[in-house]
Nucleic acid binder design. Structure first.
Lengths: 176, 176
DNA sequence: TTATCTGCAAACCATTTGCATGGCT
DNA sequence: AGCCATGCAAATGGTTTGCAGATAA
């Protein structure tokens, strides 16, 4: 299931003059063990590591995560939360895309093989190499629509999904 | 050709309790008159307006551009340059997607009707409303590949496309 | 008239960077 | 040994926000 073992990661890094460090290996493992559908921001990754007493500096996290994204190991997601998220770049058939509500920022994953095929076709046509291919669909959820969206009332309005999301977050935080 | 006239924009804004201001009208016009394939960051838009002596504050630009993106009038692009770009959200058949080189950040537009169709299908299936649908393909250009990419040497390496891009930029700047 | 909008300046905050130390190969 | 990587702290820079005055509706 893991796409990379320590040694295959090492080989790929070394082939470019880079090194396999404990930090890089640890970070890869975190992503490999992340339940499918989850993605982490740099800070979230930092916190996950802290709980495990495997402390890695934020700088290193930012550097590693960007390196791995450029290598095609991770995928960089821009999902409207104001910061980037990362996840393993799964190949077919686990490759997927994202749908984001512009009001509540809730993200929904979906698979669609046709899109990946079109991406590959496009890249082939131009003689390029594909690193990542992601469709992002911006929508408004039904609840927001019902309330008369678009209405930008960030301080005193949120659709029920956004509220549910906030409550979930607060529960997570209070668990510690 | 323009998707919105002053009055249709006004109608859409007013229907949500918002207002048509000279600033909003001006900003829409800038995007409507932008050659197809161009996109502007907030700061670029600010500079364009300054040259025309139609000064609008950066805050207003940020607020307007975000509002219009949430309304579906503009599209927010994340093209790896470290800041967001905006362009008119053209409907079919002018709808398009982007391809970005992870080394030189050069962006190439391409059209692919199949992808938009899949996006619409996906959203319909879930009973949602589509605001925007954009495929972003990350690649490495042939020049970067030839030089042994991936190799992260930001200070002393750039593929010829990146250099060409820089030169273009410098020419643009020296024209004033 | 009143709620929205603008402009300004200050605040924010995710991300980057310089540098000295540490550690792969 | 030599070069790459890490950690820390400071800097960066795009974007947001509070507030008072201006202005659509």
């Amino acid at each position: 299931m893991p796409l990379y073992t320590a040694s295959s990661l090492k080989a790929e890094l070394n082939s470019k003059g880079w090194r396999l460090t404990p930090q890089r290996e640890t970070i890869l493992h975190v992503f490999q063990n992340l339940p499918r559908g989850n993605h982490l921001s740099a800070e979230e990754l930092y916190n996950v590591l802290h709980k495990r007493d495997e402390q890695i500096s934020l700088s290193t996290i930012y550097r590693t995560v960007k390196l791995m994204a450029r290598m095609g190991i991770l995928r960089e997601l821009e999902l409207a939360e104001g910061h980037k998220h990362y996840e393993l770049n799964h190949p077919y058939p686990h490759h997927h895309h994202h749908l984001v509500c512009v009001q509540c920022n809730r993200t929904i994953e979906f698979r669609n093989d046709t899109i990946l095929k079109q991406g590959v076709k496009q890249v082939d046509k131009m003689g390029l190499e594909l690193i990542d291919c992601q469709l992002t669909i911006h929508t408004i959820c039904p609840e927001a629509l019902r309330r008369g969206w678009p209405a930008m009332l960030p301080s005193n309005w949120a659709c029920s999904r956004a509220i549910a999301q906030t409550e979930e977050l607060e529960e997570d935080l209070s668990e510690n």
